[in-house]
Design a protein around this nucleic acid. Structure first.
Lengths: 228, 228
DNA sequence: CGTGATCTTGAGGGAATTCAATGTCGGTGG
DNA sequence: CCACCGACATTGAATTCCCTCAAGATCACG
């Protein structure tokens, strides 16, 4: 049900290497990068932050892909979300991170000091609003995730593929940065079930799988139907 | 896997019966009620709002209990959350409610106009902060819900009981306002499995079930262990 | 070309579901 | 007061879906 990959701690010192410079007026967090320091690189499978560590920063994926997760006592791992370029993660209201975060592949990630942001939010309603909006988006994501987890294996996998496709605009093919194990731990299934389900979907001509990390959606309508 | 209860629409017109009066200065949404109109009563199993309806209000449970839920195409119902006295629900960032809400039992609910609140948040950082905090709390709840849904039936039921107990301060007994069907739809199980699991837990002396809606936690440590 | 990591496939078992029947409780009317 | 009724809950038997265990296949990389 799990098999955790061996994770190296990354060797970078965490604080963003440049000083954070408060933006002049309307620092659009989602769109611009005026607030941010340099993009920090993370190697494949290195930790970006750990569960229960102080939530000092907020992160934005520049390139690569990130997973957040929790591990239960007995080793079962649940992936909370996958973050792709443009996505923001690590936003917490409490002082500590409630999930851990790792680079799935070689990544570049922007760091933004939380304290700076909170201070700014106290002055700018715009910033405050963006923080709220981002949290609300995360909430919607989590709620959609809940809806996934009550479905059958086929529905979960179909839902996952549609979700990934929706995040890869303008293409009917999905390039998966994550392993079968990651997908399984996201969907609450085993790798074997994920693999078998993909094969089924391929046999029913809903998708084709030219390589294990590349999936072409051949019949999106069928997938949507399968999605419950 | 579901069996949806027949829901009557309630006969109250929705707008709070009194005009909303902006509070003088620090309208602590969580604690005081200065912002609010009168408590509005809802009969058992009546709808408070529906999925995809405009999110005009935000709600606070005064008495009773509320469930929010979504129904899939084929009738499967997923309960997103249970709300007890003091809890706030219906807070959305988008224009529409993403879940439906119903009174589980006879309820009194305070309504707060969203537009008023948003306007206030634009003036008061305190209010803005509270809105953000409430959303973040909901996010944490949803994330905890996700962690529940990947577990075994025993773990889910144990987790549910512990969650309910934690919300009933100062008591080792839980008074359940909701039916087995509600619990099942919250946990992603069937009523039969919930029922069987409760019987198991009773047989293992972790709980006792004097009546179907009342559950006494006899061995909280055992439940915590079962919780995964 | 060998080695390890990742993925797929197969066979068997187990946990939860489905289908069906029985039990319990609260209310209502005879 | 108690018999009946419907809603809700429990229990049992059979089935299904997914997991576990195990073996091969494929791929990346030295």
């Amino acid at each position: 049900m799990h098999t955790q990959a061996t994770i190296q701690r990354n060797t970078f010192s965490h604080p963003a290497s440049r000083t954070v410079r408060p933006a002049p007026h309307t620092p659009l967090l989602g769109e611009s990068v005026e607030l941010m320091g340099a993009a920090m690189p993370f190697a494949r499978n290195t930790e970006i932050y750990g569960e229960n560590e102080p939530a000092e920063y907020l992160y934005k994926v520049i390139s690569g892909a990130v997973r957040t997760y929790k591990v239960l006592n007995d080793g079962r791992r649940q992936i909370g979300a996958f973050y792709l370029p443009g996505d923001v993660f690590g936003l917490e209201i409490g002082e500590l991170h409630s999930f851990s975060a790792e680079a799935i592949v070689e990544c570049k990630v922007m760091l933004i000091k939380r304290s700076t942001l909170v201070t700014l939010a106290g002055r700018s309603h715009d910033v405050a609003n963006q923080l709220w909006t981002m949290t609300a988006k995360e909430l919607q994501r989590a709620q959609a995730h809940i809806m996934l987890l009550i479905k059958t294996a086929q529905e979960r996998v179909a839902g996952f593929l549609l979700e990934m496709a929706a995040r890869t605009p303008g293409s009917t093919a999905v390039e998966l940065p994550m392993s079968r194990q990651d997908i399984a731990d996201y969907l609450g299934l085993t790798i074997e079930t994920v693999s078998r389900t993909l094969t089924q979907l391929e046999n029913s001509a809903a998708i084709s799988v030219p390589s294990s990390r590349r999936i072409v959606l051949r019949n999106q309508a069928a997938l949507t139907r399968l999605n419950g």
